[in-house]
Simulated assay, not measured.
Amino acid sequence: MGINLQKGQKISLEKEAGGGLSKIVMGLGWDAAKGKGGMLGGLFGGGGGSIDLDASCLMFDDGGNLTDTVWFRQLRSKDGSIQHTGDNLTGEGEGDDEQIIVDLTAVPAGIKSLVFTVNNFTGQDFSQVENAFCRIVNGANDSEIARYDLSCQGGHNAMIMAKVYRHGGEWKMHAIGETGQGRTAEQLLPQVKPHL
């Protein structure tokens, strides 16, 4: 069982995974909230309509410059080390609705940090999304390293989930857990920068 992350918590991925990590998966899952519609819900685009959450991975170099973004418009990093499984528009089905698979051994040496974000492309805030979570999984054995519950976040439609970064020859993870506003990861960049 993984850690239920608290905002700002720093963990060593390798320690939590019980050894060297070569592959991690960022999973995102959700269901459209039911019965929270009503008059107001309809006005604000709620009312149980379709909800499209998007997982993204932003790649930064030592200087804090964005070098690449893996998201629904680009499902693979230019260097091939990060792969998005594809855009899920509804949250239907069990388990992860979207996944970003990272081969840590193939991430170019010039990349210092990977920042994982969740955005609601359809714009509703997280209080209208049920059972929403994002998690980091050890790709070698499918064990969950860490998990964030998104559904309790009201008034926001985006989250900077975590930063996975190189430090002293190993990969570490900083659970950022900062809510924000933005339908795409790029709209979150001003909020991401202070965490690099």
Rank of each mutant, 00 (worst) to 15 (best):
M1Y: 00
G8V: 00
K10V: 15
I11C: 11
S12K: 09
S12T: 12
E14R: 07
G18H: 09
G19K: 12
V25F: 10
G27T: 03
G27C: 08
L28A: 02
A32T: 02
G37W: 11
F44Q: 13
G46E: 13
G49Q: 08
S50F: 12
S50G: 12
D54P: 01
D54C: 01
A55C: 05
S56L: 08
D62T: 12
G63F: 07
G63P: 01
N65L: 10
T67N: 10
D68L: 11
V70A: 04
W71S: 14
Q74C: 03
L75H: 03
R76P: 06
T85P: 05
G93I: 01
E98Y: 06
Q99S: 01
V102F: 05
T105P: 00
P108D: 11
I111H: 07
L114M: 12
F116G: 02
T117G: 13
F121A: 13
G123K: 05
Q124L: 09
F126H: 08
V129G: 05
F133L: 12
F133Q: 13
V137N: 03
N141L: 03
I145L: 09
Y148Q: 15
D149W: 02
Q153S: 09
H156F: 10
M159T: 11
M159K: 08
I160P: 03
A162W: 01
R166F: 12
H167G: 11
G169D: 07
W171E: 00
Q181G: 02
Q181P: 00
R183G: 10
A185Y: 05
L189I: 07
P194W: 02
H195E: 13
